[in-house]
Design a protein around this nucleic acid. Structure first.
Length: 359
DNA sequence: AATGCGGGGTT
DNA sequence: AACCCAGCATT
């Protein structure tokens, strides 16, 4: 260990004892399962957003066995609105694998954890350290930012060679003792003090050894990757409403955009669509494109007939089979426990209000 | 090695 | 309006 890093962990741990977060839901009644669920929810998701989802999830699935036995639709329903739905599918699948392969427990080896779907190196390290008291390094966005600044690590972390250097530093600094508190402290430092813009270097416990601070511009680390302009796409969603006040939803294929979730039938704007009442179009923003949604209310007691070979508009790459995927009439009040993406949920609520007014 | 994958909070 | 968040899987 280099002389610069000799007491790095010690200073971080002292800071944690005084200022670290200790009241997060997954820090109470700690089990590997609870830590695992929290880590999956927190991938690319801010703490405040994940908390209510975590509480509802744990109320419904208190144990790993409960999750493994639950229907996937029910799990996706709990995930609806949180995004990155492959996380929910992988979580459910991994719970079943843990029952089959590991006697219903999460394995305590890094390799075995990483073999489970949805668990990568950082999440495996978090489960081991925070949930099992083992020594393991993590490297999430917070740790990446703290280390990039402290070491003045240049280069885009998206590049594998740069990422390897980040992991080397993370492993080197991770202490043998109190690993859980150290890892939690590093995330707390990144979230509350070493923030993306305007870091509070004046009160940072490791400012005296921080190269980024010494250079005078810590905010330049880590290097941000350039982002291409987001393309625009458009789709027409058919809001098919029958006389019983039910709407027609279909389940999307298990992988890809909104995988496994239930949505309205979709058509490209230029395709021939059933007659109906057009609702105002609105934009839904994804990470990699903007989707213009044109809803059309179509009344009738037959499911929509979508010409063969016409693909949906939301996912430009999806197969022609999407609109022929399993569909069903669903009641609006109450809405069944199905996973529904955010813009579809908005439309369902407006349909609910419409039917409510008419009855 | 680069890209796909949601939704929402922060600045 | 840009940026990015307790990343991982896929290609």
């Amino acid at each position: 260990m280099s002389s610069r890093s000799a007491d790095f962990a010690g200073r971080v741990l002292d800071w944690y004892d005084r200022h670290g977060r200790k009241d997060l839901p997954w820090q109470q009644a700690v089990t590997p399962y609870r830590v695992w669920v929290s880590e999956i929810m927190l991938q690319q998701t801010q703490v405040a957003t994940a908390i209510p989802y975590f509480e509802r999830f744990m109320a419904s699935y208190p144990t790993l066995a409960d999750l493994a036995e639950a229907p996937l639709d029910d799990v996706l329903h709990h995930w609806a609105g949180l995004g990155y739905y492959a996380r929910a599918r992988n979580l459910h699948k991994a719970a079943q694998l843990a029952v089959d392969r590991h006697d219903g427990e999460l394995p305590a080896a890094l390799d075995d954890l990483e073999a489970l779907p949805g668990i990568g190196r950082s999440t495996a390290g978090a489960i081991l350290s925070l949930g099992m008291g083992r020594r393991a390094a993590i490297l999430d966005g917070n740790v990446k930012r703290v280390l990039a600044r402290h070491e003045a690590l240049a280069g885009d972390p998206a590049r594998s060679e740069v990422l390897r250097r980040f992991w080397d530093v993370a492993e080197r600094y991770t202490p043998v003792e109190r690993t859980a508190n150290y890892n939690q402290a590093m995330m707390d430092l990144g979230a509350t003090l070493c923030t993306r813009s305007r870091p509070a270097c004046g009160i940072c416990p490791v400012n005296d050894s921080c190269r980024g601070h010494a250079e005078g511009s810590p905010a330049q680390y880590p290097q941000k990757q350039r982002k291409a302009a987001t393309p625009e796409r458009a789709t027409r969603m058919l809001l098919c409403l029958n006389a019983r006040g039910e709407v027609w939803l279909r389940q999307r294929p298990p992988s890809g955009l909104w995988g496994g979730l239930w949505t309205f039938p979709e058509l490209p704007l230029e395709a021939g669509a059933p007659a109906g009442q057009d609702w105002p179009a609105f934009v839904h923003v994804f990470t990699h494109f903007r989707l213009h949604i044109h809803p059309r209310l179509v009344r009738g007691d037959q499911p929509p007939v979508v010409p063969a070979g016409i693909t949906g508009g939301a996912d430009a790459g999806e197969d022609a089979g999407v609109n022929e995927a399993p569909g069903r009439w669903v009641t609006l009040a109450p809405l069944p426990a199905l996973g529904v993406p955010a813009p579809v949920q908005q439309l369902l609520q407006r349909l609910q209000a419409l039917v409510e007014n008419e009855s």
